[in-house]
């Protein structure tokens, strides 16, 4: 019975040096994994901030008790008609309240009672008797429902009901945080791309070393009529598998690292369940809570990482081999 066909015509699997490659790739892959996880986490947190910040607005109405002026412009009239409650003799605060409540997407619009406002501000303004307290604006807390009203729409309606009223959307802070998050995410993605480039660079060096070791055999098989593509596929297969192993090792390193980070972050989580679990003595429950704290897409991306690194390695090996093979006659 003849022996089974060799899958490894060039004897590439016999290079012992190449066995180091998965470990080197694993460290670069770990960096890629952490950077990707960072990018996803920043993304998820930014979305949470954005939602939380825009869900709560405050509207300040100067001179809340003054009578609301009759709407002057057609635009404003439309706004009032939408509110449905524009009435003569109304205070400015009431007019704004009515306008806000008429906007779809606004779940709740409640004035903060003047007494509570004064209590809150007492350290700065002094008590009820202080002159400063006389000029206090009326403050309305607005909670958005599931569908967020456009802030411009709110502004238009509020301005129409009581000129000079201000919608305080925490917008500046949210914008700054979102800008920060966007640049963090860009940096993390760049770092992940750089780590993958390092993987590819490691493969280039390993393939070159392998070619040098098999120069004679390559020339022989080329002489027998093997096409560049056929020879390059031997390298792609061999180094694709080594890269895949590197990716699996990277995953094995990245998962505990991310869980450890999540464990550290759990006590600061906004979900009460996570905070409770973080304090529990059951370490398994703590781990599970920590894992749940991370956005699920992190696990999906991490699961794809070994295959992605394997693919990058295979393609890099193929290109490196093809470039070298062009020297053969």
């Amino acid at each position: 019975m003849p022996p089974p066909p060799p899958r490894d015509v060039l004897g590439l699997a016999r290079d012992h040096e190449a066995r180091l490659l998965p470990w080197l790739v694993a460290f670069a892959g770990l960096l890629a994994a952490l950077a990707l996880a960072g990018a996803i986490a920043v993304d998820a947190f930014a979305t949470r901030w954005e939602r939380g910040a825009t869900a709560h607005l405050t509207v300040q109405v100067p001179e809340p008790d003054a009578p609301a002026a009759a709407p002057a412009t057609g635009e404003a009239r439309v706004g009032q008609r939408q509110a449905g409650q524009g009435q003569e003799g109304q205070t400015r605060l009431a007019a704004v309240l009515a306008a806000l409540r008429g906007i779809p997407g606004v779940a709740l619009a409640e004035p903060i009672p003047r007494a509570r406002l004064l209590a809150l501000l007492e350290p700065w303004l002094g008590g009820e008797g202080s002159t400063l307290a006389q000029g206090l604006p009326g403050v309305i807390e607005v909670t958005a429902g599931r569908t967020m009203p456009a802030i411009a729409e709110l502004r238009a309606a509020v301005e129409a009901a009581a000129p000079g009223a201000v919608v305080e959307g925490h917008g500046v802070w949210v914008r700054r945080l979102l800008d920060l998050a966007a640049s963090l995410r860009a940096i993390a993605l760049l770092a992940a791309a750089a780590a993958l480039l390092v993987c590819a660079g490691l493969v280039v060096f390993a393939v070159r070393a392998s070619i040098a070791a098999h120069r004679e055999d390559l020339a022989i098989v080329h002489g027998l009529g093997a096409s560049d593509g056929w020879l390059a596929r031997r390298f792609a297969r061999r180094f694709g598998v080594l890269g895949l192993w590197g990716g699996v090792l990277a995953l094995a390193l990245a998962v505990p690292a991310l869980l450890a980070l999540a464990l550290l972050a759990a006590p600061f989580a906004s979900e009460p369940a996570s905070v409770a679990a973080a304090g529990s003595a059951d370490s398994l429950a703590r781990l599970r809570a920590a894992a749940l704290l991370l956005p699920p897409s992190i696990w999906a991306v991490l699961a794809l990482l070994p295959a992605a690194i394997g693919l990058v390695s295979a393609v890099t090996a193929s290109i490196t081999a093809r470039l070298w093979l062009r020297r053969l006659p």
Partner: peptide, 10 residues
């Protein structure tokens, strides 16, 4: 110009 790591058959 035989391949040293392959058997005669291969």
């Amino acid at each position: 110009r035989l391949l040293g790591h392959l058997t005669a058959f291969d």
